[in-house]
Amino acid sequence: MNRFTYVRPVTVADAVAAKAGAPAGRFIAGGTNLVDLMKSDVERPPRLIDIGRVPGMDAVTALPDGGLRIGALVTNARVAYDRQIAAAYPLLAEAILAGASAQLRNAATTGGNLLQRTRCHYFYDPSMPCNKRTRGAGCAAIGGVTRMHAILGASEHCIATHPSDMCVALAALEAVVQVSGPHGARAIPMAEFHRLPGDRPDLDTTLGADEMVTSVDLPAARFTTHTAYMKLRDRASYAFAIVSVAAALRLRDGRIEEARLALGGVAQKPWRRPEAEEALRGRAPDEATFDRAADILLDGARGQGDNDFKIGLARAVLLRALAQAAAGGSDAQGGHARA
C-alpha cells in the first residue's frame, strides 16, 4: 500500500473542504473496496479523509413525502435488516442480501456501495493497460477474457460492468442521491448517477471530484408486494453477478398498472429503459408481454466473445424475475436472497 496522510473531519463541510484541499485524496467509509484497491496499487491516494464519524449520516429517517432517507454511512447490513425498508422496499433488502458476505455488509456503507469500482480483472492488475485506471492507456479487456464484461452500453474504450447489487434495486426504485460540495448541495437521480464509459471510462459517476454523497433518498413506496431481485453468479453465494434483475410491478385487476425493470452485471450502470417498462403497462402479466419488454430492454445487446451467453441468460432471468414478481415476489417462493 502507498503511504498517505490521514484526516478525520467531523462535519460534512470539513470533509468537503478536506477533499478540495487534496483533490487526489479519497474519502474512506467502510474501506472494503478502497483498501482492497490500495493493496493492489490501483488506488494510490496521497490522503485519506475518514468520513466514518461525520454525524448525521448514519440513520434511516422518514421524509415528509412518505419516502425514506438512508444516510451515506448506514451499513449495507443495517439497510437490509431495517424494518421500514424490509416492509416498504423489500426489493432493496433482497438485492443487498444477495451481495458480498455478512462480514462485508457489516462494514460496507451506502455511499461506498454506490461508488465501488468495477471488478474488471484488468482494472485490478496495474501491469495491464486500462483506460479506466489511466486515460488513453488502452483496454486490455477488449479481445481478452470477457466473461464478466458488458453486453450493453459499452464503448470501444471500456467494456466494464458496475458490480453493485444494491444500485440495481435503487435504480428500479428511482432513488435520488443527495450530495454536498463546496458550492452547496444537489440531488442526482439514480438514472443519472452512474455513467456509461463513452470516451471517459475513468469517470464512473457524475459526482464531482469535490463532492461527497450524504444520503440516498427513496421516494414513497409504490412497489412493495410484487417485486423480485434475481441474481445469477458462478456459485450460490459470495460472488458478483453475472446477470441480475430487479423487477417491480403494480398489479390491478389482473393487469400491470406500472412496472420498473433494471439489469445488473450487464453494463457500467444499472440498465433501465423506460420504453420497456411502458410496454408492460396496461397488459396482462403473461409471457408474451414479458418477452416484449425483454426485447426492448436488451435491444442492441452485443457480446464480447466469452460473454455472448449473457444475452440469452439476461432474457431468461428477466422472464423468470418478472414471473416471480407477478406471483407475489420472492416471499411467495419462500426464499430470501438465495437465488
Binding site: V10, A18, D58, T75, T109
Partner: peptide, 19 residues
C-alpha cells in the same frame, strides 16, 4: 461505523503516525 459521542479531530499537520 462505531458512533462516538465526541469525535476526536485530527489535523493534516500531524505526523503520519496516529494515536
Amino acid at each position: 461505523m462505531p458512533p462516538s459521542a465526541t469525535p476526536p479531530r485530527r489535523d493534516a499537520a500531524d505526523s503520519t503516525a496516529v494515536a
